[in-house]
Design a protein around this nucleic acid. Structure first.
Lengths: 156, 156
DNA sequence: TATTGTTATACTCTATAACTATA
DNA sequence: TATAGTTATAGAGTATAACAATA
């Protein structure tokens, strides 16, 4: 209520008072995800592959012949957004679509030979990427984190 | 090498084989963050406030008079993107800029009376939002998660 | 010279609706 | 009628560079 209270607008020694913000799980996961993706982007710059692209390639590698709707749904990507994203990978010769005889509406997805070769390199990059963060929290920490994040995601 | 191996393109009982994807920390944090933000968006739809906007409002509430560069840097937002974002909040009468006499390049940020009133409602929404996820992993789980995510973020 | 804030721009990601061809 | 994939579009989020005013 005093004039001096108006003057002392902020306690600012080194930085700002973040209050409870750094304890909010949404804030925490967002910042952690950004830190992890930043490392990913740096490592995959030469290969010009982004996280979502890697997840698509990996899913097709594990499930050759899967249809677009299956892959996009499994990754939480809209069907309408999956098409153009896949086009980019296809134009680079990493993947291909093949008509499905059983259902002529559908297209089955496959890695090309070039895509298979790329996966060997990409998997190695992912392994190094992953190891960097495991080093920070330990193997037990990673297991705990997996459990907690899974529980967070899969709720009511 | 056989024709039958070509036929059995994929083991697909219910869904796709995700392989090690769900164990990658980047994938896990991304999916968790999306689940948390989805709940946030639903709760804050009526107030028309997004996570980044809440963090800006909260930071100004805790640090009245803070300058734009300070707030944007603390939240990891580019200076050039902070301006238009703040404009939207200002046009809604929640915040305001005031010239700094000490440095006429800078603008000090404040909540308006309307903004202060809004924060009471928003903080209540955040509390309920947070409680939903604490319920899934327990209070100890939240503390552990905070520790792990902080360690992940603050590395070399 | 360096910094604060602004403007312009561009690229990615995400979300929705409408369309086609098949089923 | 419903589904697979496409197209168009729009809104966020993010990133960089250049600029004017001020330090």
């Amino acid at each position: 209520m005093t004039k001096s209270a108006d003057t002392k607008v902020k306690d600012r020694d080194d930085g700002l008072d973040m209050g409870p913000l750094p304890n909010l799980m949404g804030y925490l996961t967002r910042r952690a995800q950004m830190a992890i993706f930043e490392d990913f982007h740096a490592r995959f710059a030469d290969e010009d592959i982004r996280p979502a692209q890697y997840s698509v390639l990996k899913l097709i590698a594990l499930n050759p012949g899967a249809r677009q709707t299956e892959v996009s749904a499994a990754l939480g990507i809209q069907r309408s957004n999956f098409g153009p994203m896949f086009d980019a990978l296809e134009q680079r010769g990493l993947v291909e679509r093949r008509p499905l005889e059983a259902d002529r509406r559908s297209l089955a997805l496959y890695l090309t030979a070039s895509g298979e070769a790329a996966m060997v390199r990409l998997d190695a990059l992912v392994e190094a990427h992953e190891a960097k963060f495991v080093k920070r929290i330990g193997l037990q920490g990673k297991v705990t984190l997996q459990t907690l994040l899974f529980l967070l995601t899969s709720g009511e």
